[in-house]
Design a protein around this nucleic acid. Structure first.
Lengths: 251, 251
DNA sequence: GAGTGGTCTAGACCACCAG
DNA sequence: TGGTGGTCTAGACCACTCC
């Protein structure tokens, strides 16, 4: 029951290339194109799917990124013998959505929204002056009721339409979606990976039995429409014993 | 002296889109397009650069991925106010090359090439039977003479043209390049991130003073031309105090 | 309404691989 | 030699933003 790519809300995907990719995935899943088999040549396949060749190639490129297809120049395009689709940290999704993509039920405990002044280290990350007003959100995220990551987020208040825009932020809300609705969609993040030993507070929040190291992600998030500012800085402490952290690396 | 993208061997890049991206980078670097300024409209810019609009768009998309440009539909394309180019683990490059991309001089100590039989855990990762012949390479990589990561790699011998093909592997060699020359180019890898405490052996190899945790990357590498097999499994232990580990996440 | 980026097409030519 | 993927073009139409 490989539900990996049915999780995507591809019901009516954005672009024709994406929809074509979805159709190809279905054809592979249904065995029309069997594992190891060669696909029809690109012009032929494009004709049969009713799209142009560039559009078909966009779809095929997407499936190659998912390790479902392999292209060999001068030979053909082949279905992977061991089809599997994977993704990881290289895709920027909200923490809750990421937990759902792993097939687990996301939850939140200990949500707290505060207005604070930027201390020196946070100010440097956000490119603001020390003392500038920030909104700070902290919470612990659970997967199937088990705590897996503790999150702290800082947002410059002047990037919000009103400083109080996030005061009503709720435990079930997605911060990504909320920020997008406020005209501050996030497009990219640069995450620094640091293994650290948990302190007493973190051990308590994550309900850690041992003092095994956890993985800290220090992330600077950039908005989609400007790059002169950092929209959000966050520190996420992951209990790698309870959730798998992966990165798909492409050459 | 932002040498970040002059390190790329773009001297004569592969595709016209890549070469156009390089030209755009130079125009931005030289101030022809100042930070914050709007670029000419795409048809106009394409004409002036002597390429078609799809080719120009490919170049622009590349610079957007590098955070150098921002597109706003119905408005225009703008130069980032704080141009900076970054990359991280999401790009699959050899460890030595990755160190060079950070502006540091890569080196190797303690290189060892052995022929071993697969133990249970490695066999599972490589999709081979326990006891199957593997080539195992281990070495410690340095940056500016300082050890930063200890690497262990396992390769199924039957994927090589001859089992002895890697026996002459040298300290200055790139494993990626060597494998590509042997007809086994690597295209993707799935890395699992695990913070761990160093044992005595690792502390010795990395010359660690404290027992601060290190970051273990467990990686399965997939060849470009087939997906039924795992070409290489590796464990890399990074001293995050001596080298910055990043991931660029895209939405 | 005018101008911008977002998408898609049809067709061409090339480089590579196999027989 | 013939078929395959790799690349690039010219042009069209749409959706969005702003005046």
């Amino acid at each position: 029951m490989d539900t990996n790519w049915s999780v995507r809300l591809d019901t009516e995907a954005r672009t024709l290339g994406d929809r074509t990719a979805t159709r190809l995935r279905e054809l592979i899943r249904d065995g029309v194109f069997a594992p190891g088999a060669r696909l029809p040549a690109e012009p032929e396949l494009a004709r049969r799917l009713g799209v142009s060749r560039p559009t078909l190639r966009a779809a095929v490129t997407e499936l190659i990124a998912d390790l479902l297809l392999v292209r060999r120049r001068g030979v053909g395009t082949f279905v992977s013998a061991v089809p599997r689709s994977t993704h990881g940290l290289e895709r920027l999704v909200g923490t809750g959505h990421g937990i759902a993509l792993l097939g687990r039920r996301p939850g939140t405990t200990g949500l707290r929204v505060r207005h604070v002044g930027a201390d020196a280290s946070i100010a440097a990350q956000l490119h603001v002056a020390p003392g500038d007003p920030l909104v700070r959100i902290s919470r612990t995220r659970t997967a199937d009721e088990v705590p897996v990551v503790h999150c702290a987020e800082w947002i410059p208040a002047d990037l919000l339409p009103e400083p109080t825009a996030l005061d009503a932020f709720g435990a079930a809300d997605s911060l990504h979606d909320r920020l997008a609705a406020l005209g501050l969609p996030l497009r990219q993040a640069v995450a620094r990976l640091v293994p650290v030993l948990p302190d007493a507070d973190l051990r308590d929040r994550l309900d850690l039995a041992s003092d095994a190291p956890v993985l800290l992600l220090e992330q600077r998030h950039f908005p989609a429409t400007r790059t002169d500012r950092v929209a959000l800085f966050s520190r996420h402490w992951y209990d790698s014993g309870r959730i798998d952290l992966q990165v798909v690396r492409r050459g």
